[in-house]
């Protein structure tokens, strides 16, 4: 059962996700209180262990905010993150959990709007489920 205020862990790439979160805050956009933000040097650092640990500790969902394909400062870090997320989604489905618990979200540094929108979409998905 998902509470009204779901706990979401956002792993944010320092190059894109973090500035986007800060942009959203500076614009005063609505973000849920249950959002926990973890900055990482690269989206590709969001390792399987982190994502599973977050779910294990009771997070309702995990989001990985990384750079768009073709814009990673470390060439392919974002692609690795995406592959990892897709793999974990498959696994979740196999054990009967919703794959929507882990999502990969590419963002640009100056797109606070999109950041808030994606988080809201995730909240809606969780509450709708």
């Amino acid at each position: 059962m998902v509470s009204k205020n779901p706990k979401i862990v956002a792993f944010c790439c320092e190059e894109s996700g973090m500035p986007a979160y800060e942009h959203a805050v500076s614009l005063g956009l609505d973000l849920p209180d249950g959002l926990k933000v973890v900055a990482l040097p690269c989206g590709g650092k969001a390792e399987t262990g982190y994502l599973m640990k977050a779910l294990d500790e009771g997070a309702d969902a995990v989001m990985v905010f990384a750079c768009y394909e073709g814009n990673c400062k470390y060439v392919r870090g974002n692609i690795r993150a995406e592959k990892r997320v897709n793999y974990l989604r498959e696994r979740l489905e196999k054990i009967g959990l919703s794959p929507e618990k882990i999502v990969f979200c590419p963002v640009a540094p100056a797109s606070g709007q999109r950041f808030a929108e994606l988080v809201q979409r995730e909240v809606d998905t969780l509450l709708g489920a």
Binding site: Y68, P109, S111
Partner: peptide
């Protein structure tokens, strides 16, 4: 200027 990424980076250099 705005970021012009779609599902991937479109190399607009705004970031």
């Amino acid at each position: 200027y705005c970021c012009k990424a779609t599902d991937q980076c479109n190399r607009c250099f705004v970031c």
